[in-house]
Simulated scan of single mutants.
Amino acid sequence: MATSVNPYLLFNGNCEDAFLFYKSVFGGEFSFIGKFKDMPAGEPGSCPEVSEKDANRIMHVSLPIGDTILMGSDSNEQSGDVAFGGNFSVSINVESAGEGDRIFNGLSAGGTIYMPMGKTFWGAYFGMFKDKFGVSWMVNFDENQPK
């Protein structure tokens, strides 16, 4: 198996909503989705005790998108709330300008667009935005790809 890098997003209780939204745009099925209440007590990797507040939060979710797996979870009382920062973006490379528009329009709904999809000086069709969950995204179609 080759080494791979996959983005892992952390949320403060709305991970399931975010991933259902991402699934509605990208399609596919979750390869895994589990809540903190589903963890077997006393097993390696389990939290010692799950509060009622955390029971229905997402412990882990995986959504395959092409050769990448977008992963995520919610914070819990032990980890504390996640402070969202502007120091990362999820970059999606697509196979056509039309697919780029579809993904950009879907994911940016209700969010903040920083750079609408458009041609760039470096030969890409590209756009940037923050989605309604506070996650920054870049959508890229390399127009000058080798055939």
Rank of each mutant, 00 (worst) to 15 (best):
Y22F: 03
L20N: 14
W137L: 15
P7W: 02
C47D: 06
K53Q: 05
S89N: 07
T112D: 12
S108P: 01
A109L: 13
Y125R: 11
N105Q: 13
F88N: 04
E52N: 07
F19V: 09
K35Q: 09
P64Y: 00
G45V: 09
K35R: 15
I113E: 04
G127H: 01
N14Y: 10
S62P: 00
V90N: 04
P7C: 11
G111V: 05
M71P: 01
S79H: 05
E95Y: 12
S108F: 01
R57S: 02
M39K: 14
E99N: 08
D54S: 01
M128N: 01
D142G: 14
N56W: 00
G80T: 08
E16T: 12
V25D: 05
D142S: 14
S51D: 05
E99F: 09
S96C: 08
K35W: 09
A124G: 13
A55D: 09
N144H: 05
R102N: 15
M138R: 01
Q145H: 05
P44I: 15
G86Y: 04
G106S: 09
N105I: 08
F11G: 09
M115Q: 14
M138Y: 01
A2N: 13
K119M: 07
I103T: 08
M117H: 04
N6Q: 00
S75P: 03
V25L: 08
F129H: 03
T120D: 01
G127M: 06
N105A: 13
R57F: 05
T68Y: 02
G72R: 00
A18H: 06
F21P: 09
G72L: 00
A109H: 09
F141W: 06
M128K: 01
F129V: 12
A97H: 05
N14A: 10
S89M: 08
D131V: 07
